[in-house]
Amino acid sequence: MGTQRLEGKIALVTGGSRGIGRAVVERLAQDGAVVALTYASNESAAHDVVERVRKDGGRAFALHAQLGRRGDAAALWSAFDAQIPQHAPGRSVDIIVNNAGIGRSANLTSLTEDGFDEVFAVNVRAPFFIVQEGLKRLRDAGRIINISSGAAHLAMPEAIAYGATKSALDNFTLNLAKELGARAITANSVAPGIIDTDVNAGWLRGNPEAEAHAASLAALGRVGQPEDVADIVAFLASDDARWVTGKVIDATGGSGL
């Protein structure tokens, strides 16, 4: 295990069964937190994460949560309340990581109303109400970390709705920082660039030209890995980041410089 600087802390990570979310779960558990991770459909992947964490000496448990529907936040927290006594005393939480999200590869003329509503429901509405419902459980000096995207600050017409959701999430972060500062709760966004995850596997992995192009976009000259993002989240979750709030932390490896 790691430095245990999150010993005694309880974290909730949405979308924690794969990719960036999985790396965040593993890193927070390595640092000593009890981690509740949510999954939408891939139960086996979620339980694989839990088993890996436990094998490494950490503590984690999985919650099924279908986000993007009315009442999703209340259902998630009810499931959390039911399970947390088995893993840690009380029904409190110290760290909320809003990682779950979906993309829509559609431009202005092709995006449907249903597609628009779905991407905003999962990427914006769900984090909003997860935090709203979670505030009664979030301890003072807690942490809210929203996983945004470098796309929030770039013109990407082929993913116009996705970029808009991440811009909205960053504004949500800003307002949370102001609203909750009196309780010493910090709120920050982490904005990754191209990361080697299952979401990007179809066009990135096994395609040397695509990988070379993606690497060329970053000043650091490589494609990002989930652990690159998870380490930043771990910093923001720790007491070392107690004086950082209301910020969007660039995690693109210097893309677009």
Rank of each mutant, 00 (worst) to 15 (best):
N107C: 13
I102Y: 06
S167Q: 14
G101Y: 08
V229G: 07
I102Q: 09
L220Y: 08
D117Q: 14
N99C: 02
T38G: 07
D117L: 14
I10Q: 14
P226Q: 04
I195M: 12
H153C: 00
I144N: 05
N207D: 12
A23I: 05
D31V: 01
L76F: 10
S148A: 15
G150C: 04
N123K: 12
H213W: 09
A155S: 14
V199H: 10
L111C: 12
R104H: 02
G150T: 09
K9L: 00
G221C: 06
G101D: 08
D228I: 09
E43R: 15
S41Q: 12
D198R: 09
G68R: 10
M1E: 13
L154A: 13
R70F: 07
I195D: 09
H213G: 10
S105P: 03
V49M: 01
S110P: 03
Q83H: 09
K55A: 15
I96E: 06
A214I: 02
S41N: 11
D250S: 15
V131I: 15
K55P: 01
T112Q: 04
S255N: 10
G142R: 10
L176V: 02
R137C: 00
V233W: 03
G253V: 11
V199P: 00
A218T: 05
K55W: 07
G57W: 06
T245Q: 02
T252R: 03
V190S: 00
F116N: 04
I84C: 02
L220R: 01
G224E: 08
W77I: 05
M1N: 15
I145N: 02
N188R: 00
A36S: 13
S255F: 07
I145S: 04
V35R: 13
A23L: 04
I95K: 12
A33Y: 10
M1Y: 07
R143M: 04
A184V: 00
F172M: 13
A182G: 15
H213Y: 11
E179R: 06
P89F: 01
G101F: 01
G142W: 01
T173V: 09
G221F: 03
A46C: 04
L217A: 07
V229S: 08
A214K: 10
M156F: 11
V244Y: 03
D198L: 12
G163T: 08
N42M: 03
S41K: 12
I249W: 01
I95E: 14
D117E: 14
Q83P: 05
V124R: 11
T165M: 11
S105N: 14
L217D: 06
T165D: 09
A79Q: 11
E158D: 14
G246M: 01
R125G: 04
V35S: 09
D140A: 15
T14V: 02
R18A: 13
S149C: 09
R69M: 03
A74I: 13
A237W: 09
G103A: 12
G224D: 07
I232A: 07
N171H: 14
A121E: 05
V244I: 15
D239G: 06
A251V: 11
V233C: 08
A201D: 05
T245V: 04
G115C: 10
K166S: 09
S17G: 15
R205M: 06
I145W: 03
H87C: 01
A218F: 07
L257T: 12
V119Y: 12
A201K: 08
R18N: 03
I95F: 05
F80H: 02
G115E: 11
A40G: 11
E211G: 04
D72H: 13
V97C: 00
V233N: 08
L169G: 11
D117I: 10
A23Q: 07
